[in-house]
Write a protein that binds this DNA or RNA. Sequence first.
DNA 1: GTATCTGCAAACCATTTGCTTTCAC
DNA 2: GTGAAAGCAAATGGTTTGCAGATAC
Lengths: 157, 157
Amino acid sequence: MKARTTTAREALDRRAEEMLHDLKCAGFKMTPQRMAIVRLFARDLGHPTAQDLFERLRPAFPSMSFATVYNTLDTLAQMGLSRTLRLGDAKGGARFDPNPDPHHHAVCDACGAILDLPAPSLLPAKGEALMVRERAPGFTVRAVEHVYRGVCASCHG
Amino acid sequence: MKARTTTAREALDRRAEEMLHDLKCAGFKMTPQRMAIVRLFARDLGHPTAQDLFERLRPAFPSMSFATVYNTLDTLAQMGLSRTLRLGDAKGGARFDPNPDPHHHAVCDACGAILDLPAPSLLPAKGEALMVRERAPGFTVRAVEHVYRGVCASCHG
DNA sequence: GTATCTGCAAACCATTTGCTTTCAC
DNA sequence: GTGAAAGCAAATGGTTTGCAGATAC
C-alpha cells in the first residue's frame, strides 16, 4: 500500500516533468510561476478550478495573478496536454483536466466533484456510429464524450 | 416537401401551445412576454442561447429584460419541459433545449451547431452501468449525456 | 539584448438579485 | 384587489485583455 501510493505519486511527478519538457521543446520559457502551476496541476487528479490552483499557489507566489494561471492552462490545452471541462452548472467556473488519455466523466450533482472513467477510445461504439450517420448525415465524429450525472459516494449515494 | 415542412412546423406550434397549457395548469400567469418567449423557444430546434432569444424578442418587446428570459427558461426547466445544455468547452453561455424526449447531441467544432440524436433513454446502457459501478464505487447514475464532437455536413464533413 | 512573460487593473460577458411598478387573474 | 411577474439597474463571479515593467533565453 505504501509502495503503491509512492508509485502513483511518482507517476504523477513524471507526468509533470513530461509536461514541462513538452513546453520547453515547444519554445516556452521555464519561468518559476509556470513550473509551479504545471507541477501542481499535473499532480492533481481532482479536476481543479483556476481558483483552486491560484489559492494553493499564492503562499509560494504572493504576487501571482489570475492571468498567469489562465495563460498557462490555455497553453497546455492548446498543446493538447490538458482539457477544459465545463460540465457543471454555471456557478463555480471551468474545471481543468490534466489527463490526456481518452476517458469519460462522472459528475456529482450535489458537490460538483468530477470522477474519471476509463474509455478504450474516444471513438464512437459501432451502434453509436451508425445512429449518428443515420440521424445526422454528413456529420463526421471526431470524439465522443460521455457524462454520467448523479450523486457520488461521499454525498450519500 | 411543402406538406412535410408544414407538418413539421405545425408539430412545433402544437408543442408551443402544449408548453403554455402546462404552464397555465401549473398556475403560472399567461403574460404576453412569457407567451412570446415560450412560443419562440419551443419552435427553435437550434438550441438558442438566452442572448439569442432576447435579441429576437426585442423588436416586439423593446422593454423586455434579460431577467424575464432567464426566469421563463428556469421555470420551463424546473417543470421538465426543457433542458439547459452546457456542453463542454463551449464559449458563449448556456444553450437551451426545448426537446423533452431523451436524446443526445452532436456538436460541430467548426460552427458550433448542435444536432439532436435520438436515444431510447437517458439511463446508462448495461455495460456503461457496470463500468461506472466498478470505477466509481457508490456513485449513483441519474442520467447519461453523450456528446459527439466533430464536423457537420455544412461545414464540409 | 530581446522577445516573451508576469502582474495589475480594468474590461467583459453571462447570469443573478433587489426593489419598484405593472398587470393577469 | 392581490399576488405574481416584468422592468430596471446594479452586483456578481469567472474569464479576458492591454499595457508597463521584469526576466528567461
